[in-house]
Design a protein around this nucleic acid. Structure first.
Lengths: 211, 211
DNA sequence: ATTGACAATTTCGTATACGATTTGCAAGGA
DNA sequence: TCCTTGCAAATCGTATACGAAATTGTCAAT
């Protein structure tokens, strides 16, 4: 698929940016990164280009790359996009859901409830939302949703561990799944919309407090 | 912003793929393109990488790039994404619309009606849809919508010139705008959804016929 | 004639090298 | 003191060069 030398660099930088190790605005020197990974600048450039597409760095001609983490406004905007995409995908998915889908989601929610590792919550949350949309069969919308989740990951992770707890999301997840199982599309979609909107409000509050 | 040498190559190849000059599956040789544009392979690689992100070419390690135009299914999926994003953006936009927005959109529709150049229809259509979503203030969702429109451009352009004509889209555009002006969010969103869904059905029919 | 292996050629990926642009700093003038 | 001006160092973008992988063509063996 992609060039092998650029892959680990891309992954590593992405991880460092998303986890906050690299602060916003920090400049990324091609030569330095190249030396650090023991390669030349060319695969580094490739990695930086991909990061620019992800909106994680800004490239300026002859000036280099700088970390460009999302602003408060942009995070809320990304959540709006999630509302749009996930609700529509869920609407498309519900008619295609079969017994094993419901079983798998129930199983996941059970594991979710049992799991005490806060670090696991985030990935389980992502998996549940992914499973909700998967039966839509629209591979492109799903990959966009996954991308959004990855970008939002860091903020939501902090949020989950800090403030929210597990009860509310779990209850809402259960309600969404119930409506899906009843085939009640409009209730399920509305529940999902409220679920993400609540998250949106919590993120807004968190960011306001953290500012 | 981006590297200057890669830009024209990217634009040219993108145009050639979207306009159908390069057939699906056709291989793109780095050296050949480089010689053609009078540059080395490195900016060519950069252009190809960007095209891969756009899903317009497929890159395989040590095998090179091949044109990868969207399949019928994928076009319909992209239209589904447009439904999700545009409807949500419109919902966010309506409360923010002011007099000048309505005036601008009316003007555009007037020009649209007067315009006899089929080649202009596509770009006017895009502009109208863009204006509908713009007051949402969500820059990211708008840029995603614009990207989708660009990708779908070729197919919708053919469709407009071949089959559809101007009456139906114009009528629907007018109805959407009326509902916006009344501030009737749910009617406007539903009208927009139906508008895109009709396009979706027409694309499906067109592709079935063309196959 | 078909298949298999091996060699030659093509094509890709990346390191190195070099010109172009920007940046940082220091010296000079207002 | 503060602002320009010019030079040096750092950094970027791309051409060239070379090793690695894949494709193609050839030839012998079945």
């Amino acid at each position: 698929m992609s060039s092998s030398a650029a892959d680990p660099i891309y992954e590593d930088l992405k991880c460092q940016i998303l986890s906050g190790k690299l602060t916003s605005g920090q400049r990324l020197r091609q030569d330095q990164i190249a030396k650090q990974f023991g390669v030349s600048k060319i695969p580094v450039r490739e990695a930086l280009n991909r990061l620019e597409v992800d909106n994680l760095v800004v490239l300026e001609r002859n000036k280099g790359a700088a970390v460009r983490r999302y602003s408060e406004t942009e995070i809320l905007q990304l959540l709006d996009i999630r509302i749009a995409l996930e609700c529509h995908a869920l609407e498309l998915a519900i008619p295609n859901m079969i017994g094993s889908d419901f079983r798998d989601m129930r199983d996941l929610l059970d594991d979710y409830a049992k799991c005490s590792e806060i670090s696991e919550w985030s990935s389980m949350n992502r998996r549940f939302h992914h499973m909700l949309c998967e039966p839509s069969g629209n591979a492109q919308i799903i990959s966009m949703i996954d991308d959004l989740q990855a970008k939002l990951g860091q903020y939501l992770r902090v949020l989950l561990s800090q403030a929210v707890g597990l009860e509310r999301p779990m209850r809402e997840h259960g309600a969404i799944l119930d409506a899906c199982e009843r085939g009640d599309s409009s209730v399920a979609v509305e529940a999902l919309r409220n679920h993400i909107e609540t998250t949106q409000k919590e993120v807004a509050a968190f960011l306001r407090r953290a500012e």
